[in-house]
């Protein structure tokens, strides 16, 4: 698998680590939301917004849209710029 880092260009997946669902960008502001935020996942079979870290590159956190069935990478953006 390869990801195109917005800062570094196309790179082998070895340079990245994976965190999980991009729901993590939306940290709740009230205590009620935290259980869902920390634990509950849509876990779709299909396109999935997720967070990757370019640890062996620029250190950037990326928001990647990727299909979990085909592994096709649909889009990559810097997480700081892609916050909903």
């Amino acid at each position: 698998m390869r990801l195109t880092c917005p800062l570094c260009g196309p790179r082998d997946v070895r340079e990245f680590s994976y965190r999980g669902d991009a729901v993590l960008t939306d940290r709740p502001t009230t205590p009620e939301g935290f259980h869902d935020y920390v634990h509950i996942r849509e876990n779709p079979a299909g396109p999935h917004d997720e967070l990757w870290h370019h640890g062996a590159g620029c250190g950037g956190w990326l928001k990647v849209r990727r299909d979990t069935v085909t592994h096709e990478v649909l889009s990559v953006a810097l997480a700081r710029e892609a916050r909903s």
């Binding site: 960008t25 967070l51 870290h53 956190w61 700081r80």
Partner: peptide, 10 residues
């Protein structure tokens, strides 16, 4: 990595 996450993502 956690600090980078907090700063860039949160």
């Amino acid at each position: 990595v956690h600090l980078q996450f907090c700063q860039q993502v949160l």
